[in-house]
């Protein structure tokens, strides 16, 4: 019997590269948990006192219960959901904006390019969490702060890579040919340049996503990101660290799940990078 295609793909991957296969599997499981979380029969994330307070893991409460007697497993699932959603949303927006800015700067060169490159340097000089403190001072803690900080950190990453690839492309024959043929700038950017920088953007995307998840969880850990009653993996760890020595399973489960989530993104990102940009063609900066 021939196995269905996804399974055959996975078996092939497992044979060739176990680490990547494990990363893909973990990422898929976590994403499924995040998407299906609210509909899974694992208990209610918000109902108080379903069990004793701070009880250790058991069959009924696989991750134990928190200080309000809530089952911790559904709370971790909610946390996975918001950590992934928030970071992915922020990085997607930043990637689109950064790609556009980088392409325009690299294609037009001159003053616009100079301004863009310098601004990217300025944004790059802010350490993520200190920028988070400043933004939290300006607009208050919350999702907006988390998204802005991820954008500040990720924007220069996208602008720089897209700009440098576009700069290298603009002199090439097929671009000049398109210009001579009278193609509009929009067409040149969208049809001729964009497909050629897509690989670099995808590679940068996975890298930025893992950084975004670290930033989001760190901000929430400091109490500047996702606010209660909502939960992200970082804010769960923040609450759990209060009861670290009485109920270490709270900190350990949320910390391990968070690390696994970021690690699966990194492993998949490595594989994507190796596939799209072999080492001998990769820019080392």
């Amino acid at each position: 019997m021939i196995a269905p295609r996804p399974f055959r793909f996975f078996a092939d991957l497992w044979r060739r590269d176990r680490l990547t296969a494990l990363g893909v599997a973990t990422l898929l499981i976590l994403l499924l948990l995040g998407v299906l979380g609210p509909y899974l029969p694992i208990g209610d994330a918000t109902r108080l006192a379903v069990g004793p307070r701070l009880s250790p893991p058991s069959w009924r409460f696989p991750f134990g219960t928190d200080e309000l007697g809530r089952s911790f497993l559904p709370r971790v699932v909610i946390g996975i959901r918001s950590t992934f959603l928030l970071s992915a949303a922020a990085v997607t927006m930043t990637a689109s904006l950064g790609t556009l800015i980088g392409m325009v700067a690299g294609y037009y060169r001159g003053l616009a390019d100079e301004v863009v490159a310098r601004s990217a340097d300025v944004l790059f000089s802010f350490p993520a969490l200190l920028a988070g403190l400043l933004i939290a001072a300006a607009v208050g803690p919350g999702r907006i702060t988390a998204i802005s900080v991820i954008a500040i950190v990720a924007l220069p990453l996208f602008v720089r890579i897209v700009r440098s690839v576009t700069l290298a492309l603009t002199g090439r024959g097929f671009i000049v040919a398109a210009e001579v043929a009278g193609a509009s700038t929009l067409r040149i950017l969208g049809v001729h340049i964009l497909p050629n920088i897509a690989g670099a953007v995808v590679v940068q995307f996975t890298y930025a996503l893992s950084i975004g998840m670290i930033i989001e969880s760190a901000l929430s850990f400091l109490g500047l990101g996702v606010q209660p009653p909502d939960a992200s993996l970082g804010s769960l760890l923040r609450q759990a660290s209060v009861y670290l020595t009485f109920a270490p399973w709270l900190a350990l489960t949320s910390g391990v799940v968070l690390s696994l989530a970021i690690m699966s993104v990194n492993l998949v990102g490595d594989a994507v990078r190796d596939a799209l940009e072999p080492l001998n063609r990769r820019a080392l900066t």
């Binding site: 680490l19 990363g23 760190a218 760890l237 670290l244 020595t245 350990l252 968070l258 970021i262 690690m263």
Partner: peptide
Amino acid sequence: AAARLVGAFGLSVPDFVLGTVLILVFSM
């Protein structure tokens, strides 16, 4: 593969998660 695993591990475990684990271990 070992270098890749160490690299991926280090880039993935946030400093505050590692710090929390260190606090737990070294306070016991």
